[in-house]
């Protein structure tokens, strides 16, 4: 039994509008949106963990696994179908998470953050050492097919954009339901007070384990889409600054609603690209000030704008 609420209708509508927009926005804008939505999928995983009280500074690990699965699938294993590659990437990430999760779920707070960072940096190191995979230069991703159909250059980008929009929309819907399910509520309870959850006879550790796997799958999906869109992968995907950016976008949007990461990721992409264009020498500083401004004035993220408006109406 699925209860359909206003948010779900809104998400579905937003997905359709974004999909329709693909028809007439210029290619460069569609490309920025593709990358931003793919990144937002990873951020959804980070938010998922945040709602359970965990902050990962190493989500780049699974992002990178997803990306490399897509790249290597095409390069070495002759898999060229995009949806299949994405599934392979997600499965690979979940498999890795299933092993690492056994260790990671023992940690909380800053220790979880630091250990996740260390693990992701180890993958970075391994990739830098792998000259067959192009070391730091990485390698180019072969153009993929979609359910067996191949597309010309221009429609390829449009199809990829649509795929990203629907995956992002679908992912958001699922996460919205998860957040409002019993499991989602218990994750929040763990964040608030883990011991009381234990007293209720539940095992926070295994609940967090499930959370960790789900977040990994989302990260790999985002990584795979990013690899398909840019056509190139390199170990930078696992570097700690990449993971830091995900956390950043997560906090920028806020954790209150599944739509927040999308808004934040898109805003982040635009601020960055225009900052680079108008002040090529000081774009980092502009980015810093914008982010600082948002944190200082909107500590609960951009989504608090929407919330306060709703409250004002009510």
């Amino acid at each position: 039994m699925i209860h359909i609420d206003r948010s779900m209708v809104g998400l579905a509508a937003a997905t359709l509008i974004l999909a329709a927009m693909g028809g007439f926005v210029p290619d460069w804008l569609a490309f920025i949106l593709t990358l931003a939505l793919a990144k937002a999928l990873v951020v959804q995983g980070v938010v998922l963990q945040m709602r359970a009280g965990l902050v990962s500074f190493g989500q780049g690990l699974f992002f990178c696994v997803g990306g490399y699965a897509v790249g290597m699938g095409g390069q070495f294993f002759g898999i060229h179908d995009a949806p299949l590659l994405l599934v392979v990437g997600a499965l690979a990430a979940v498999a890795l998470a299933a092993v690492l999760g056994l260790l990671m779920t023992r940690y909380r707070d800053i220790f979880f953050a630091m250990l996740s960072l260390a693990l992701s940096m180890i993958l970075f190191g391994v990739l830098v050492k792998s000259s067959d995979l192009g070391s730091t230069d990485g390698f180019n991703v072969h153009p993929a097919t979609f359910f067996g159909h191949s597309f010309s250059n221009e429609s390829y980008k449009s199809v990829l954009y649509l795929l990203t929009v629907f995956l992002a929309g679908g992912g958001a819907l699922i996460l919205h339901m998860v957040h409002h399910s019993g499991l989602g509520r218990i994750w929040e309870a763990i964040r608030e007070n883990e011991i009381r959850v234990e007293y209720l006879g539940l095992s926070p550790r295994w609940l967090l384990y499930a959370n960790y796997l789900l977040a990994a799958a989302f990260a790999a999906l985002g990584g795979g889409l990013t690899a398909l869109a840019t056509g190139h992968i390199d170990p930078e995907m696992a570097f700690w600054t990449t993971s830091g950016e995900f956390v950043f976008i997560a906090l920028l949007g806020g954790t209150a609603h599944v739509a927040a990461p999308f808004i934040a990721a898109i805003l982040f992409a635009f601020v960055r690209t225009y900052a680079i264009e108008f002040t090529p020498h000081t774009w980092q500083m502009i980015l810093g000030f914008v982010l600082l401004g948002i944190i200082v004035f909107l500590p609960k993220g951009l989504w608090s704008l929407v919330q306060s408006k709703r409250r004002a109406k009510a």
Partner: peptide
């Protein structure tokens, strides 16, 4: 590189 691809598309388009 990811960012550079994005910026290159901006330059071109």
């Amino acid at each position: 590189a990811t960012k550079q691809v994005e910026e290159f598309r901006n330059l071109a388009e």
